[in-house]
Simulated assay, not measured.
Amino acid sequence: MSLDTPRTETRPERLTAHEALQRLEHERAARLTQLHAIVEAAPDAEEQVMCTQKDTVRRVLAEVEAAFARVQDGSYGVCRTCSRPIPVERLEILPYTPFCVPCQRNAA
Results as ranks from 00 to 15, higher is better:
4 D>A: 12
4 D>S: 13
4 D>I: 00
4 D>Y: 03
4 D>C: 01
5 T>P: 03
5 T>V: 13
5 T>I: 05
5 T>C: 15
5 T>R: 10
6 P>Q: 05
6 P>N: 04
7 R>V: 05
7 R>M: 03
7 R>H: 05
7 R>F: 04
7 R>K: 14
7 R>W: 09
8 T>E: 15
9 E>F: 04
10 T>N: 10
10 T>R: 14
10 T>F: 10
10 T>C: 05
10 T>P: 03
11 R>S: 13
11 R>V: 12
11 R>I: 10
11 R>L: 11
12 P>D: 11
12 P>S: 08
12 P>A: 14
13 E>C: 02
13 E>V: 09
13 E>D: 07
13 E>A: 15
13 E>T: 15
13 E>H: 12
13 E>K: 10
14 R>D: 09
14 R>G: 08
14 R>P: 03
15 L>E: 05
15 L>K: 09
15 L>Q: 04
15 L>H: 11
17 A>G: 11
18 H>G: 06
18 H>Y: 12
19 E>F: 03
19 E>H: 07
19 E>S: 02
20 A>E: 08
20 A>W: 01
20 A>S: 10
21 L>S: 09
22 Q>A: 14
22 Q>W: 10
22 Q>D: 14
23 R>K: 13
23 R>S: 07
23 R>I: 01
24 L>P: 12
25 E>R: 13
25 E>F: 06
25 E>Y: 10
26 H>L: 03
26 H>C: 00
26 H>Y: 06
26 H>A: 06
26 H>S: 07
27 E>W: 03
27 E>P: 01
27 E>R: 14
27 E>I: 07
28 R>S: 15
29 A>Y: 00
29 A>Q: 01
29 A>K: 00
29 A>I: 01
29 A>W: 00
30 A>M: 12
30 A>H: 13
30 A>T: 08
30 A>S: 09
31 R>V: 03
31 R>S: 09
31 R>Y: 07
31 R>I: 00
31 R>K: 09
31 R>G: 03
32 L>K: 05
32 L>D: 03
32 L>A: 02
33 T>A: 15
33 T>H: 11
33 T>F: 13
34 Q>N: 08
34 Q>D: 15
34 Q>H: 11
34 Q>M: 14
35 L>V: 03
36 H>F: 08
36 H>Q: 14
37 A>Q: 06
37 A>K: 02
37 A>E: 13
37 A>W: 02
37 A>G: 07
37 A>F: 01
37 A>H: 02
38 I>C: 01
38 I>S: 01
39 V>G: 01
39 V>Q: 08
39 V>Y: 11
40 E>Q: 12
40 E>I: 09
40 E>T: 09
40 E>L: 12
40 E>Y: 04
41 A>I: 08
41 A>D: 15
41 A>W: 02
43 P>R: 04
44 D>N: 07
45 A>R: 14
45 A>S: 12
45 A>K: 12
45 A>N: 08
46 E>I: 02
46 E>P: 04
46 E>Q: 13
46 E>S: 13
